[in-house]
């Protein structure tokens, strides 16, 4: 790095920052203004309408619960898959490719796939019926079965979103030379110790990226939920969509959008603080 010109890196990223500002900050300011104004004057009316809506509390709760249920499972599965695939020699690429197929499917299509499995006349019921476990078609995705609905949506989300986490984690694992694990092994560390004390700390940067990305995406969850539960399972983006299209109330929709953004930014900040990456401690 050039130490005598510390401003140089900043100068180099300036164009991209300016570009982002133009295409991101302007609409952002417009949205925030839309949320925090009424008839051209500053007002909290939209926020009040949003907070007073019967679906508001449930959509916040559902979104957070879903994120809380889905993210840890996805990270755990991705770590397991990444570790497994790193032990494989031949056929590694093929396995990675198969595992990333859900990535190539749009989230609405993913929702449809799981709808085909979980709906009344779906594959799950057929299977359970065939095995003699149920006597007639069971509804999983209704207002009366919130737990089943939640689990169904969580599974669909895990299925759809784990691959992206895994790709990031595999990239992180590839950066860790095998000698570190080998040295630990020679000095008496078992597989579990090696994972916790060597591998995990060394893939911190990848883990941080994966967590941030996954969390932001989790708060934006919509299409899968919409396909499986409609408004039986209200989530934040779903509410924004409903206010925008059904109620034609752009102000309240904007209020939801701002809320989602604030939550995402806060989560990112938390990760940056908790999963700290100290460049001094990297290979």
């Amino acid at each position: 790095m050039t130490n005598d010109r510390p401003w140089l890196p900043y100068a180099l990223i300036l164009p991209s920052v300016a570009f982002l500002a133009l295409l991101f900050v302007v609409p952002l300011v417009q949205t925030v203004w839309l949320a925090l104004s009424e008839n051209g004057a500053p007002s909290l009316a939209n926020i009040r309408t949003m907070a007073g809506d019967i679906n508001f509390a449930r959509s916040v709760q559902n979104t957070f619960l879903l994120a809380l249920a889905v993210i840890p499972v996805q990270i755990a599965i991705a770590l397991a898959m990444g570790t497994l695939v790193s032990k494989i020699g031949a056929g590694r690429e093929t396995i990675l490719w198969i595992w990333t197929i859900p990535l190539g499917i749009s989230d609405l299509a993913a929702g449809m796939v799981w709808l085909a499995i979980l709906q009344n006349t779906g594959y799950l019921n057929s299977l359970l019926f065939g095995l003699g476990l149920i006597e007639r078609q069971t509804a999983w995705l209704t207002y009366q079965t919130p737990v089943a609905l939640f689990i169904g949506i969580a599974i669909a989300e895990i299925w759809r979103g784990t691959a992206i986490v895994m790709v990031i984690i595999v990239a992180g694992l590839n950066q860790v030379p095998k000698e570190f694990r080998e040295a630990a092994e020679v000095f008496g560390a078992g597989p579990w110790t090696r994972f916790w004390r060597i591998t995990l700390p060394l893939i911190r940067p990848a883990l941080q990226s994966a967590l941030i990305l996954r969390t932001v995406l989790a708060f934006e969850v919509f299409a899968v939920v919409y396909a499986l539960g409609g408004r039986n399972f209200p989530v934040l983006v779903g509410e924004a969509y409903a206010w925008q299209n059904q109620n034609q109330n752009y102000g309240v929709a904007a209020a939801y959008a701002v809320l989602i953004m604030v939550i995402s930014l806060a989560a990112t900040l938390v990760y940056l603080k908790i999963v700290k990456v100290d460049p001094e401690r990297l290979p």
């Binding site: 030379p177 080998e182 990297l282």
Partner: peptide, 10 residues
């Protein structure tokens, strides 16, 4: 002692 040291960076 490894040829490329394998000293843990973290």
């Amino acid at each position: 002692v490894f040829q490329n040291y394998a000293v843990f960076p973290h």
